[in-house]
Design a protein around this nucleic acid. Structure first.
Length: 952
RNA sequence: GGGUGGUUAGCUCAGUUGGGAGAGCACCAGCCUUACAAGCUGGGGGUCACUGGUUCGAACCCAGUACCACCCA
């Protein structure tokens, strides 16, 4: 069913109904699909987390992507904006586990892997669409027919293929390495999922006794090491001192007897030890700290793991060599005392034991940071586990080059440095996760642990020639979600098949994303895409800043300052807003504070502003790559702008519907105002187009806003009234003005559509027949191209003059407190032939807009008492003897004269400067000279006027 | 500690080859003028963080300082 606009537009802009109606119709009509011809243009949406809901960051990025997409589509390109969601391994698994526990009181282990996964899929089918539904409300013109999910079978094929090829090339390997371990969720997690939080911590200073009677130069029989994690003492393998540190030079190579454990460990020299920090000695625990791992590696130390996957102390340590093979030489015995204790319990006990032994030298209070799992909320433990890794170095090189060579460009440019810096010392990437929900690693093991990689057990048997006597078990781990999203641009287009889509839409044109995932996602997409397609995934990366609250604070649930984009679109009352902000808090005690804050900031809740206003605000604030402090006032301002456009359309429609608008190309006569607004329209079209091309959405939005409000509404619509309402107007004149009203409005709608799609479409449907335009939807209309030959410089200059006279009169009127509606007589003096021509041609505009009783040139009779303003050299006089406060007028002129004199002084000073005259460009000097002459002349005129007044 | 970005009107921010400081909102005054009070008209308001340098000329280029934010260690 086609949307039918109301019989007449409502007096006030009411976005909700319009927006829902059009979103539905556009999608149903299939306007979001690629048109199938023309130059291709494509954007892949950064797949949002399937468990997520739309936040301001999404709204921001999606508004930008939609603007680009609609803009390109209107340029008649074969445009694809592809949408989809990310399976979000941990988040989804946790969500379903919680649901299962709440509803059935079962754990995932009770169900078993197969059944649990079925539950996850059920959840996904029922509830996984929240964020895509919200996307629709934003007007996102994504091709819903091609919606993708990273767990789709087609996509899984790509994931498998990539894994297998990388493995076969030796770029994927399995090994024992330190990873960020989440002891609650029992999985490795990525750096991105680790939140570092500042806290007040303790630094425990322990004495480590030297073996064999060795003493320090000071005569002590121990070294002091400090640690924030005493429990790791059990896994220490050496103590490091700085090689330049003379205090300990004699001890390097000597041994220490590790307290409580009794193990002999050496003192080694390593730069990692900071001479100025504490005693300068550092305990090294390679199996429990990332830095220590590196130190251990340099000194060929074994890895002694003392913790379980729950981060409790093991009964016996696990000891490995650096290559991951078991180390039999070191005694794995751990003290009985700590067995099975949680790390924090073990810490307390260990400190107490050390104190009892007289080995606790000091406890220092310090500020430090601790890593927390962002999902589980528990402290992350670096833990030695078997994991799968991607060798990054060979993939990184081409990825760096692609950016160096400009095949991929970052906007803004400075993010390229960030990218290079990270890519230069990139580490191998841990891609396995100990979860059930995700892409299962396509690897099988035989009984002795040999690894076979392939699509399926069958494929593996064939590939490796394994008979049925060999029993195979598939690896239980899944792949990091980022591994699959790294294939997003080409995996979603059908790769590894050579599909038409892949040929047409890859590489994609631009990726719009936040700077926080350049490393985790952008870099990985570049590496993997280059590797497998020999193409870059996208030509441009447009990096957005963060949206913060009005105080510059990050929005977060715990701060209670989150703004939901949909609440700004549809509005929300205070009660519901409070409910939303204070429920489900991690720290419920914050609820009161948040409620108070919210009541203060939004005493009446949040009003409805509509999608267009929200989008326009986001775009208008999208300056290059910096964070945005959200400002509700700007949102209101742009909602008002939509209302302005709406009402302008009402005016145009009421004056053109059912009238002769010259649609058939009948002869017309264009007024100065018509020629001027047409000229300004061309300039604006060029400007908006240029800014969109440079990703300066703020400048594009601004140029549009200014043209619509300041030129079209404030001046042109007002100037059209005297023509339309003139009793003796010619048909050609009327037709010309009506046609211009309608055509310029129609162009405005096309120009604004990518930014504010709904309101423009709604109005356009009404305007198009009047403008003689065909088409089912504004979405498919042509992007307005500026026509240089329609820019009439004379008209622009003439209209500036008209505006100048009107403004002069308004100014005088206000200065003298004359009622706005009162008709005034006006006298013009010192009018040049040019001024006289302009006056002749535009008398009616001046009379109506300045509300003049009559308008004459000063003749022989001279001037009565007047208030005067200058327009260029021409004097604009209000002859109002009875109404003018003489003294006030003289004072006003004084102020004006003073201002001019200041100006003259500065300009004259410049011109007196020899080196300015000789060195500055001639044009600049000329300009200054003219400026001085103008100011001098004006000053003279004002002084003369003052004298005249005084005489009277 | 290293790196990046920022500091312009009360607030949020523009200012693109260095040449007369801008917008929106807020503020003040006056207006229900037949599109719009979510509006119209007029107005006030800034030592462009600070110091120095380059230049005839600096919000803009260079160096340094202070403060803020983010990234890395």
């Amino acid at each position: 069913m086609t949307s039918k606009p109301e019989a007449s537009l409502d007096k006030t802009y009411q976005p909700a109904d319009i927006e829902k109606r059009w979103a539905k119709e556009w999608e149903e009509k299939g306007y979001f699909r690629p048109r199938g011809e023309g130059a291709p243009y494509s954007i892949m949406i950064p797949p949002p987390n399937v468990t997520g809901s739309l936040h301001m960051g999404h709204a921001f990025q999606d508004s930008i992507m939609d603007t680009l997409t609609r803009w390109q589509r209107m340029q008649q390109k074969n445009t694809l904006w592809q949408v989809g969601t990310d399976h979000a391994g941990i988040a989804t698994q946790m969500l379903v586990e919680r649901k299962l526990a709440a509803e059935e009181g079962k754990s995932r282990h009770d169900l078993g892997r197969e059944n649990f996964l079925e539950k996850v899929w059920e959840w996904k089918e029922q509830s996984g669409g929240t964020i895509t539904r919200q996307l629709r409300r934003l007007g996102a013109s994504v091709d819903w027919d091609r919606e993708r999910f990273t767990m789709d079978s087609g996509f899984y094929k790509a994931v498998q293929e990539v894994f297998i090829r990388l493995y076969d090339e030796g770029l994927i390997y399995r090994g024992k390495r330190l990873v960020n371990w989440d002891p609650k969720l029992h999985t490795a997690i990525s750096d991105l999922e680790v939140e570092n939080k500042d806290q007040k911590g303790k630094f425990w200073h322990f004495r480590y006794p030297l073996a064999d009677g060795v003493k320090t130069p000071e005569g002590k029989d121990y070294l002091v090491v400090a640690t924030t994690r005493p429990e790791t003492l059990l896994g220490d393998t050496c103590v490091a001192v700085n090689p330049k540190d003379e205090r300990y030079a004699s001890l390097v190579g000597k041994d220490i007897i590790l307290p409580l454990v009794g193990r002999r460990i050496p003192v080694v020299a390593d730069d990692h030890a900071d001479m100025d920090k504490g005693s300068g000695c550092v305990k090294i625990t390679p199996a429990h700290d990332f830095n220590d791992y590196q130190v251990g590696k340099r000194h060929n130390q074994p890895l002694i793991n003392v913790m379980t996957i729950d981060a409790a102390i093991r009964d016996q340590a696990e000891v490995y060599n650096l290559d991951g093979t078991p180390n039999e030489a070191i005694d794995p015995t751990l003290p009985e005392l700590f067995k099975g204790l949680d790390r924090f319990e073990a810490r307390k006990k260990l400190v107490a034991e050390m104190e009892a032994l007289g080995l606790l030298e000091d406890i220092e209070e310090i500020n430090n940071t601790l890593p927390y799992g962002d999902r589980s909320g528990v402290v992350i433990e670096p833990l030695l586990t078997d994991q799968w890794f991607v060798k990054i170095a060979p993939l990184a090189e081409p990825a760096i080059q692609a950016v160096e060579k400009g095949e991929i460009e970052f906007v803004p440019k400075q993010y390229e440095n960030m990218y290079f810096a990270w890519m230069r010392d990139i580490q191998d990437w841990c891609i396995s996760r100990q979860l059930w929900w995700g892409h299962r690693i396509p690897a099988w093991y035989d009984e002795v642990g040999n690894i076979y990689v392939g699509q399926s057990e069958e494929a593996v048997r064939q590939k490796y020639n394994l008979g049925t006597e060999v029993s195979l078990e598939q690896d239980t781990d899944v792949l990091d979600t980022w591994f699959s999203s790294g294939l997003w641009t080409f995996g979603t287009l059908g790769w590894p098949e050579e599909t038409e889509e892949l040929k047409t839409f890859h590489p994609t044109d631009v990726l719009v994303t936040g700077f926080d995932i350049i490393f985790f996602w952008v870099a990985r997409m570049i590496m993997l895409t280059l590797k497998f397609t020999d193409q870059v995934p996208f030509k441009t990366v447009y990096v957005t800043g963060l949206i913060r609250d009005d105080n510059g604070q990050k929005m977060s649930k715990s701060k209670g300052n989150v703004l939901d984009p949909l609440d700004m679109i549809d509005g929300i009352d205070l009660e519901n807003l409070l409910q939303k902000r204070t429920s489900g808090l991690m720290q419920p005690q914050l609820a009161d504070k948040i409620a108070k804050q919210t009541k203060k900031a939004f005493p009446e809740g949040i009003g409805a502003h509509g999608t267009d206003a929200l989008r326009f605000t986001l775009l208008a604030m999208a300056t290059t790559g910096r964070d945005i402090n959200w400002d509700m006032k700007r949102l209101e301002g742009y909602r008002n702008f939509c209302n302005k456009l709406w009402n302008a359309a009402r005016y145009v429609l009421s004056n053109t519907e059912g009238e002769d608008c010259g649609v058939q190309g009948e002869p017309v006569e264009l007024t100065l105002a018509d020629r001027w607004i047409i000229s300004r329209l061309q300039q604006t079209e060029a400007e908006v187009t240029r800014h969109l091309g440079n990703y300066r959405f703020d400048l594009a939005a601004n140029a549009f806003y200014e043209f619509v409000w300041n030129d079209y509404c404030d001046w042109y619509l007002e100037l059209s009234k005297p023509v339309l309402w003139k009793e003796d107007a010619h048909p050609e004149e009327l037709r010309g003005t009506r046609r211009t009203l309608v055509r310029v409005l129609e162009a405005i709608l096309r120009l604004g559509h990518p930014m504010i799609p709904f309101i423009t479409e709604e109005i356009w449907q009404r305007v198009k027949p009047l403008a003689g335009v065909e088409g089912d939807s504004l979405m498919l209309a042509e992007w307005p191209e500026a026509a240089k030959d329609q820019i009439d410089d004379q008209a622009i200059a003439d209209l500036e003059w008209v505006k100048g006279v009107i403004l002069a009169v308004r100014n005088l009127r206000a200065e003298m407190n004359l009622p706005p509606g009162k008709l005034l007589p006006l006298l013009l003096d010192k009018a040049s032939p040019e001024d006289q021509r302009r006056l002749q041609e535009n008398r009616i505009f001046l009379q109506k807009l300045a509300k003049l009783e009559n308008l004459q040139l000063v003749g022989e009779e001279g001037l009565p008492m007047t208030a005067m303003q200058l327009v260029g050299q021409m004097e604009v006089h209000l002859p109002l003897a009875g109404l003018i406060d003489k003294e006030a007028e003289i004072a006003r002129l004084d102020k004006e004269i003073e201002r001019l004199q200041k100006d003259m002084q500065r300009t004259a000073g410049k011109l007196k400067n020899e080196s300015f005259i000789s060195k500055a460009p001639a044009a600049v000097v000329e300009k200054e000279k003219a400026k001085l002459a103008d100011a001098e002349a004006a000053c003279e005129q004002l002084k003369k006027q003052q004298q005249e007044l005084q005489k009277l």
